[in-house]
Simulated scan of single mutants.
Amino acid sequence: MAGEQKAKAKTEQAKGKAKETIGRAVGNERMEAEGRAEQSKGDARQAKEKTKDVFKH
């Protein structure tokens, strides 16, 4: 389960980065903001999983 969540976090971060880059390239501020939000969501998920790993060991 933890590995699945870590992979999901990485996927969210990558999708968010791509969305932000595309939004910036085409001048779409909404898409750029959505990309940043998605990256933040991935960052939060990754932090949560790292915290769980610390307490697991």
Rank of each mutant, 00 (worst) to 15 (best):
M1F: 04
M1V: 06
M1W: 00
M1C: 02
A2R: 05
A2E: 07
A2H: 05
G3N: 13
E4L: 10
E4V: 07
E4W: 03
Q5L: 08
K6T: 07
A7L: 11
K8I: 06
K8W: 03
K8R: 15
K8C: 02
K8M: 09
K8N: 10
A9K: 04
A9C: 07
A9F: 03
T11Y: 02
E12L: 10
Q13K: 14
A14N: 12
K15V: 05
K15F: 01
K17T: 12
K17P: 05
K17S: 11
K17Y: 02
K17A: 14
K19S: 09
E20P: 08
E20A: 15
T21M: 08
T21W: 05
I22L: 14
G23C: 07
R24H: 13
R24D: 14
R24Q: 15
A25W: 03
V26I: 15
V26F: 03
V26E: 15
G27T: 10
N28S: 10
N28R: 12
N28P: 09
R30L: 12
R30Q: 15
R30Y: 13
M31R: 14
M31A: 13
E32C: 10
A33V: 07
E34G: 05
E34Y: 06
E34H: 12
E34A: 03
E34L: 10
R36I: 08
R36H: 10
R36Y: 03
E38H: 08
E38T: 12
Q39R: 13
Q39G: 11
Q39P: 06
S40V: 00
S40Q: 13
S40I: 00
S40C: 06
S40P: 07
G42C: 06
G42S: 02
G42Y: 02
D43I: 03
A44H: 02
R45T: 04
R45L: 01
Q46L: 11
Q46H: 08
Q46A: 14
Q46I: 00
Q46M: 13
A47T: 01
A47S: 11
K48S: 07
K48Q: 12
K48E: 08
K50T: 05
K50G: 03
K50C: 01
T51C: 05
K52L: 01
K52Q: 06
D53P: 05
V54N: 08
F55V: 09
F55M: 09
F55S: 08
K56L: 09
K56H: 08
K56S: 12
H57D: 12
H57A: 13
H57K: 14
